[in-house]
Amino acid sequence: MSDPDTAQLRFRPHHFLCALGYQGKGYSAAFTRNMDRIVQDGLRGEDGDGVEIAVVARTDSVCGPCPHRRGELCESQEKIEGLDTRHAAALNLSAGDRLSWGEAKARIRARVKPGDLGVICQSCQWLEYGMCETALRRLHEATGPSD
């Protein structure tokens, strides 16, 4: 397995679903600009499905400009660890794994059904807005029924 730090993007487990549901909102202007670059310009770009992502167990490419970041941790570290634990289990991810965005979306589709986010995203302040649930439903509808 390759060094996760050499991948173009590094995601902690819960950021896979955050990227799927991202709709141009964030914690600060700098955070939103960074997410726009990662998601809108990268993952949703023409070659987005081929973007390689390394799974990490610490702050990642999304966390860089977050106002809640405290070095390699988050000021809400306990909450974030819970989110990461539930997402890693749901998506069968471990630190050091590498996958393309296309593979990540296929894994999300296969392993996370509409309605599951209430459990795996429990405690996320963005859950109540429904952006991730809408994106998850669209992912399932775009690809048809599960096998």
Rank of each mutant, 00 (worst) to 15 (best):
65 P>A: 12
125 Q>H: 10
35 M>K: 03
47 D>L: 12
113 K>W: 02
128 E>Y: 03
92 N>D: 15
33 R>Q: 13
43 L>F: 04
45 G>V: 11
75 E>I: 15
41 D>E: 13
51 V>R: 02
101 W>N: 01
50 G>Q: 15
81 E>I: 14
94 S>Q: 15
127 L>C: 01
131 M>Y: 15
33 R>S: 10
70 R>I: 14
59 T>C: 06
120 I>A: 01
55 V>A: 01
120 I>G: 01
76 S>K: 06
53 I>N: 00
55 V>N: 00
88 A>C: 05
97 D>T: 04
37 R>C: 00
41 D>W: 04
129 Y>T: 10
5 D>R: 03
63 C>H: 03
51 V>I: 15
60 D>T: 09
81 E>A: 13
132 C>G: 07
138 R>C: 07
5 D>H: 09
16 F>N: 08
106 A>T: 14
143 T>C: 07
82 G>M: 12
20 L>R: 03
105 K>H: 04
102 G>R: 08
145 P>H: 12
6 T>S: 08
107 R>G: 04
20 L>E: 01
72 E>I: 15
66 C>V: 10
49 D>L: 10
136 L>P: 06
110 A>Q: 14
97 D>L: 05
100 S>F: 09
37 R>P: 02
93 L>Y: 06
26 G>C: 06
115 G>W: 12
84 D>E: 06
92 N>C: 08
86 R>C: 10
128 E>L: 12
56 V>P: 01
47 D>M: 10
90 A>K: 03
127 L>N: 01
115 G>K: 04
74 C>A: 06
